[in-house]
Every structure is written in C-alpha cells, then in structure tokens.
Design a protein around this nucleic acid. Sequence first.
DNA 1: GCTGAAAGCCCAAGGTT
DNA 2: AACCTTGGGCTTTCAGC
Lengths: 157, 157
Amino acid sequence: MTSTVLDDVDREILYAFQQDARNTTTRNISERVGVTASTISNRIAQLEADGIITNYYTTLDYERAGFPLHVLIRGTAPIAEREGLARRALDIPGVVNIRELMVGEGNIRLETVGQSNDDITRIVTVLSKMGVSISDEVLVRNQYYRPLAFLETEVES
Amino acid sequence: MTSTVLDDVDREILYAFQQDARNTTTRNISERVGVTASTISNRIAQLEADGIITNYYTTLDYERAGFPLHVLIRGTAPIAEREGLARRALDIPGVVNIRELMVGEGNIRLETVGQSNDDITRIVTVLSKMGVSISDEVLVRNQYYRPLAFLETEVES
DNA sequence: GCTGAAAGCCCAAGGTT
DNA sequence: AACCTTGGGCTTTCAGC
C-alpha cells in the first residue's frame, strides 16, 4: 500500500462512469481529458485493481419492471452477529441492498422490492427468524442519484 | 401504454446488467439465452425506451477514493415542498443519493460522503437553511448489493 | 419479431520514447 | 507514465424471412 493521489484523469473517469458506465468509452474520456485512450484504459485497470471502482451496476425502475413496492426496512441485530446477519439477509429474495450502520438501535437497513405486500411480509418474517428485530418499514416514493464530484483527494492504494 | 410482459430474454438482460453493466456484452448474453446478439441489442433499446433501465452506474469505494466519511442523514420537509427540496438538496456537494419516503416524520433520507466532519456539518447546515429539519445522522460501516432476481412479472410499457 | 452478414467502432497489447 | 499502431472483438444496421 503506497500513498497515491487521484489526478484529474482519474476523477474524470470516475465522474463519467458514475453518469454512464456502459456507453462511456475510453476514447470518449480521452478526448475530454487530452490523453490517449490507451492511457485511459490503463487508469481504469488501476482504479479497479485499487478497489476504488467496485462495480458497474444498472439501476432499474422497479415499479415499471413489475415491482410496485419499494420499501426500506430498519432493523437491529446483536453487534457480534451484525455482519454475518447482514450478509445472509442479502440472500432473501427481494432484498437488493443492505447497509450496516455504526449505531446501536437500527444498525441494519435494508432496501427491498416486491410485487405485493405478501413479499414484504415474507421478508420481515424471515428477518425476524434470523434474529433481526424490525422497528420500521417505509415506502419509497422517489429516488435521485448524483455522481460524486471530486475535489483534491488523497488515497491509499 | 400497453401491457407487456418481461420474458426470459429481458430478465436475463436485466440480471446480467445488474451484475456488470460494463463488461457484459450483447454476444455474451445471447449465448446464454439462445438468441442472436442483434436481438439482445434490440431488447436493450426497448428496455431503455420503456424506462425500465434507468441508468448505468458505477459504484465506488468512497473510503478508498479519499472520502472516509459515509453518512446517512434523516430529515423532514414540509409535504408540499418535499419533492422540490429533495431535488435541490441533490445539488449540495457531497450528497450522492436522496430518497423521498411516504411517511410524515423523516420523509427525506440522504446518502452523503465527505473527507472530514466539516463536510458533513456543511451539508447539514445547508439543509437546515433550506427548510429541512434534521433528526439523525449515522455512519455507514458496510454496504452490500444484490441483483434483483425476477420471477414472473407483468409491466405497463 | 428474429436472423445473419457486413461495416464501423472500440479495446487491449506490445513496443517505443 | 504516456504514446502509437494494429489485430481481434463487439455492436449496430438492414435486408430477408
């Protein structure tokens, strides 16, 4: 692990990929930044190797995809089992995202989708049996994303 | 808007794209499903046109990218202004995601990242001035994603 | 609505400065 | 660390079914 710095080229890559991970080409970025596409290709490989880029993901409109229920669930797991429970809860059908939080009450937050209330009920039931106590369920009305704009940054790589 | 059904080809595309939106090729999917790459290309265009695919996104390890603070903020906005406030809050540097919820207390949830506590403080200050009352801030410890696995689904297109 | 071929574009690799 | 060239692969388009 040596200390490295994200320069303008890296930042441009990360910003472009957050906006469109599929249709952004190395050539495309290279024209914006003023280096060759080969260089962009090398930088991307480096960003992936460093674990800074973790995944290329596609966001869906769950409702249009046939899943009208989009629900956030808040639960609490015993500290010692928190991480294991979070990973296992990810296997419950309908769970699409899990966050572990640095807090006592409500240390696990799940993003779930379903076709009917039964789907959500089933998820909550399974969570309870796993040892997660549920304290809250709320419907998502809308969601907006914004690419992270980078300023001067220093990272360990 | 006519009623359409997602078939196995569509589901395979959505599932593959949720796993890797950048390195999954049309040919790659076509071999799994048993239709030609041309057909996959057409289906993708249709899924985009229908608004089922909303974005191709890249997830980052914010900590390794130089932003060690990853914080969820919970706030409440007056119902009438909720949507407008949510959209404007997205322009605050460091805010990467906003959800509007169908609930009274805590109807706006923000995902934010920062290099120092000052960054988070600044975000909260701006939110307060905008008219959002903040009730909670918690640190994210870990996060896991899972592609949505589709069963039989019917959608409006 | 799917197929198949062709044309154009893109990416990765190796060698060079 | 960045550049240049090239070979191979990918995507899209369109005529045909």
